[in-house]
Computed example of a mutant assay.
Amino acid sequence: MSPIPAQNGLVHVRVPTYKRPDLLLRALKSLQSQTWTDWVCDIYDDDPDAAGGEVVQALNDPRIHYTQNKPQRYASGNINACFSLSNPRDADYFCVLEDDNYLLPEFMAENIAVAREHKVNLVLRNQITEFNSHVEVPTLSVEGVLDHLFKDGIYTPEMFRLSLIMGIGISNGGLFWTRHAQSPIEITCTCTAVLQEYIRTYILTEPIYVAMKPLAVWMENEAATTRNDGDKAAYMRRELNLKRAIQMLQRAAWQQTTPQVRRGFMTNPAFATPAEGRARGLIKAHLAGPNRHVPLKDALELALRGALIRFGGKTATDFDEMVKNSTI
């Protein structure tokens, strides 16, 4: 663990919330439990009934500020706005805490220590997953969400983007940045909250430190974390469109990487993903054919699934333009 720095930096926490007062209370209490006490929190409530306001009033913590969105931003818009590089609080550090997640006590202090020690403006912190959140004692994962993907250390933007071949890269709840960050982490094109994370991975323009010690908790509970309309066919179409957009980002990231890096991708020690996982990602994205790392039957199935995604999924015009005109 890096030494805990002196507390001379204000952390601005942005919290998007919607109709989950009990979870919001848990998230805010995790802020109050931070060993780093120099923080301020802005809550952006998309609930027309303003249930989050009662939570904030009950806590009566002068560091926590409440705003009811008028008009509503909806899930993707509310989350995305929290990644603005604007700095109305004149803060030194920033993070986003979605209402269904929470932080472990050393989250702020250790991220600040990493940023200062390694002189980076972006830190991606590993998280553990909470399952069965509806029961009294939820289950927490043993492994972190980044364990299969990264190793502890600094990644150049070019190298970090290649994580898209195997996984999501940035997870919103793990991203921590300084006031000097220049990467456009607020997304400007039409997309879902999930796709935003993949786009943030793709558009980074500066080094990022991946810190593998898990210090945050991410809740895996789709029914509780999305505004689901119950239409299975519509859900399947959205999933296909999402996978098509991800595939486009994978292909763009690969094609914009130097030949030398592509040649060494399968054995590059920066990634924790085994060779088979890397090969599967390349085959499904139609960036490589069958190879010795994946059984032929599996490779053909992956290629077929990739073709279904490539020719069946649809993406928004402004997303297409963003990928086409990117100059990363």
Score class of each variant (00 low, 15 high):
residue 3 P to R: 13
residue 5 P to H: 13
residue 6 A to C: 11
residue 6 A to Q: 13
residue 8 N to P: 00
residue 12 H to V: 00
residue 13 V to N: 02
residue 16 P to D: 04
residue 22 D to N: 10
residue 22 D to R: 10
residue 26 R to H: 08
residue 28 L to K: 02
residue 28 L to V: 08
residue 29 K to G: 00
residue 30 S to H: 02
residue 31 L to W: 01
residue 35 T to Q: 01
residue 36 W to F: 05
residue 37 T to P: 02
residue 40 V to T: 15
residue 44 Y to T: 14
residue 45 D to A: 08
residue 46 D to F: 10
residue 47 D to F: 03
residue 50 A to Q: 09
residue 51 A to Y: 10
residue 52 G to L: 07
residue 52 G to H: 04
residue 53 G to W: 06
residue 54 E to R: 09
residue 55 V to E: 07
residue 56 V to W: 07
residue 57 Q to D: 13
residue 59 L to Y: 00
residue 60 N to W: 00
residue 64 I to F: 04
residue 64 I to C: 03
residue 65 H to C: 03
residue 66 Y to L: 00
residue 77 G to H: 09
residue 79 I to K: 14
residue 81 A to N: 14
residue 83 F to D: 13
residue 85 L to G: 07
residue 87 N to E: 00
residue 90 D to T: 03
residue 92 D to P: 01
residue 92 D to F: 01
residue 94 F to K: 03
residue 96 V to D: 02
residue 96 V to P: 02
residue 101 N to R: 00
residue 103 L to I: 02
residue 109 A to N: 11
residue 109 A to G: 13
residue 110 E to C: 13
residue 118 H to R: 13
residue 121 N to E: 14
residue 121 N to Y: 08
residue 125 R to I: 08
residue 127 Q to N: 06
residue 130 E to M: 11
residue 131 F to A: 07
residue 134 H to D: 13
residue 139 T to V: 15
residue 141 S to A: 12
residue 145 V to C: 14
residue 145 V to Y: 10
residue 146 L to T: 07
residue 147 D to E: 09
residue 154 I to Q: 05
residue 156 T to I: 11
residue 163 S to V: 08
residue 164 L to S: 01
residue 165 I to V: 10
residue 169 G to Y: 06
residue 170 I to W: 03
residue 171 S to I: 15
residue 171 S to H: 15
residue 172 N to A: 15
residue 175 L to H: 12
residue 175 L to T: 13
residue 177 W to R: 07
residue 182 Q to G: 00
residue 191 C to Y: 11
residue 193 A to N: 11
residue 199 I to W: 01
residue 200 R to T: 04
residue 202 Y to G: 07
residue 202 Y to F: 15
residue 204 L to I: 15
residue 210 V to W: 05
residue 215 L to D: 10
residue 220 E to K: 11
residue 220 E to D: 10
residue 222 E to F: 12
residue 225 T to Q: 09
residue 231 D to E: 08
residue 231 D to Y: 09
residue 234 A to D: 09
residue 235 Y to H: 12
residue 236 M to N: 08
residue 240 L to D: 01
residue 246 I to T: 11
residue 248 M to W: 10
residue 248 M to Y: 07
residue 255 Q to Y: 10
residue 256 Q to D: 12
residue 257 T to F: 08
residue 261 V to E: 09
residue 262 R to W: 04
residue 267 T to Y: 10
residue 267 T to S: 12
residue 268 N to V: 04
residue 270 A to D: 03
residue 271 F to G: 03
residue 272 A to R: 02
residue 275 A to M: 04
residue 280 R to T: 04
residue 284 K to F: 03
residue 286 H to A: 11
residue 288 A to S: 11
residue 293 H to P: 04
residue 297 K to E: 15
residue 298 D to N: 11
residue 299 A to E: 05
residue 301 E to D: 14
residue 304 L to D: 13
residue 305 R to T: 14
residue 306 G to F: 05
residue 307 A to H: 14
residue 311 F to V: 15
residue 312 G to H: 08
residue 314 K to W: 03
residue 315 T to A: 02
residue 315 T to F: 00
residue 316 A to C: 06
residue 316 A to K: 12
residue 319 F to A: 05
residue 321 E to N: 09
residue 323 V to A: 05
residue 323 V to C: 06
residue 326 S to D: 14
residue 327 T to W: 05
